[in-house]
Design a protein around this nucleic acid. Structure first.
Lengths: 114, 114
DNA sequence: TCTATTATTCTAGTTTTATGGAAACGAATG
DNA sequence: CATTCGTTTCCATAAAACTAGAATAATAGA
């Protein structure tokens, strides 16, 4: 994941309503949730919801799939994994350290994480 | 990690300069970096650097330790692990799914991640 | 075709955040 | 005690983001 992608993803998630939407979709898993369904659950006006969904899609954190009149939104798990890998990449300059040991579990196999 | 803490951390990281600072400190590891050192490396005016450092400290992502005239900043690895755990918590409602399998590696031991 | 339903875009007003020069602060040095 | 150096705070300006009502598509069913 490129730096700009990571910034876009973090900016998108750094907002109460968008984080709530994203978490809802992460818990929902691959089956996703319909737009109206999300709005009902989070009590958000349609325009506001649509605005935030668009932000999340644009950041690559979720995907939208129209199904007739409905739109199904799903978490983009790959993007999430990429973001986590970006944050932890090369931590402690690649040298094992007690302080960052738990981070290692989050590193991608190929990373030089400690 | 509470939702509000996660939002604060994500908001703080969702900015090019702050993400650069944080990544610098993650790579630096437990020894950290001096404020002026960071400013030199990232080419940032003192006032701007101080503003962003304060944001990161307030979000709990880094710590500041005065050492005489200098201030040493360090990444808060626990906060980083907490944030990752928050994002991945209970993904796919706890049921193993191919789509989120890589996420599992990032989950804390006690989590019901897939 | 007409209507109800679902979702998005338009738009404007409000709020929040970022920037960096100048001044102030605190600690070490002479 | 005065000076220097590193850092922070103050402040005004500029820029960006949030919200939601109203209008606009797009689809399904009668």
């Amino acid at each position: 994941m490129e730096t700009n992608d990571a910034i876009a993803a973090l900016t998108a998630l750094g907002h109460a309503k968008r984080l709530a939407i994203f978490r809802l979709l992460v818990v929902a898993g691959p089956s996703g949730r319909m737009a109206g369904d999300i709005g009902d659950e989070l009590g958000m006006p349609g325009a506001t919801l649509s605005f935030h969904l668009k932000e999340l899609v644009h950041a690559g954190l979720i995907t939208a799939e129209p199904q007739g009149r409905f739109v199904c939104y799903r978490a983009a798990f790959e993007a999430m994994n990429g973001l986590i890998a970006y944050l932890t990449h090369n931590c402690c300059a690649g040298s094992p350290q007690a302080e960052c040991a738990p981070v290692a579990a989050a590193c991608s196999p190929g990373d030089a994480c400690c």
